[in-house]
Design a protein around this nucleic acid. Structure first.
Length: 265
DNA sequence: CGAATTTGACCGGCGC
DNA sequence: GCGCCGGTCAAATTCG
């Protein structure tokens, strides 16, 4: 996994404002102090980003491991049926083909958890695929409605998705995927982007990408390791930084200082 | 006007 | 056999 981008594209505020010429400019010491302060802040931000990236990578590795050691923990939200499915699957003799294919789909299900604004009633989990909603139901175990989606990118694609707000954590959307896409990922750039409610923009960024994921039913989502995911991360960080008034003030100060020092011809 | 979404009806599996 | 429950269908409605 490459963390090069952190170093290559480090958000350095060094805009060429180094200590140079202009002996007549009085507060050189003050400017240098400011520059040092900004550089220090810049270094801390870089470290924070680096730590975030490291933690994210470690978390993902751990989740992958957990997913791989609990193969029966997938699929249906109903533990009763899940157990029956597992047992049936073991004892099945292939008599009921259609039923078994359904069970296969159930056992191949994966879960994805997405953090969203709890006040947002929509059950939209954007994963780059194109989904068509075909039903919604309030289930017994969870007062929040469960939405049923089918992959509509390819007419023959068998993949289905159930999305329901977690009963324990209302800000958590649980998306359960069943089946395997029989087509390529339609828009790789959208991999791992998460719907951002419009009204959340002013508040602190609370959108986690995917918190956890079980086995790779969605081949397309495996692109998490690709540079495109880095790009998504970078975009997310840019969005976060631009919301930070201290950061924008520092950038504005640096730019104005530069303009005052080297006025355009 | 066609596509997407909503929502009540219906179906099948399961437990009692 | 009956009722409950999750999942799906399809007509009605909404949206672009």
């Amino acid at each position: 996994m490459g963390s090069d981008w952190i170093h290559q594209s480090s958000p350095s505020l060094d805009l060429g404002v180094g200590p140079r010429r202009s002996p007549d400019q009085a507060p050189v010491g003050v400017l240098e102090a400011m520059l040092n302060q900004i550089s220090e802040e810049n270094r801390r931000l870089t470290e924070m980003v680096s730590d975030m990236y490291t933690n994210h990578s470690a978390l993902r590795r751990r989740l992958s491991y957990l997913a791989s050691v609990s193969p029966c923990e997938k699929g249906s939200a109903s533990p009763k049926r899940k157990r029956v499915d597992c047992e049936k699957h073991a004892a099945s003799d292939g008599e009921h083909a259609c039923k078994r294919s359904r069970e296969d789909a159930m056992t191949k299900a994966s879960k994805v958890y997405v953090r969203t604004d709890p006040s947002d009633p929509s059950l939209v989990v954007t994963d780059g695929y194109q989904w068509r909603k075909y039903g919604q139901k309030v289930t017994r175990r969870n007062p929040s409605p469960r939405a049923y989606f089918r992959c509509s990118f390819a007419p023959s694609c068998p993949v289905k998705k159930k999305v329901q707000r977690s009963a324990e954590d209302k800000s958590l959307l649980v998306a359960t995927y069943e089946g395997v896409h029989n087509h390529k990922h339609p828009s790789p750039d959208e991999v791992y982007t998460v719907k951002c409610p419009s009204h959340i923009n002013s508040s602190a960024p609370s959108i986690d990408p995917v918190v956890t994921r079980q086995p790779d039913v969605d081949r397309g989502l495996g692109e998490i390791e690709s540079p495109k995911f880095d790009r998504a991360l970078v975009e997310q960080m840019v969005a976060t930084l631009t919301k930070d008034p201290n950061f924008t003030a520092a950038v504005a100060a640096a730019i104005s200082e530069r303009i005052l020092r080297d006025p355009p011809a």
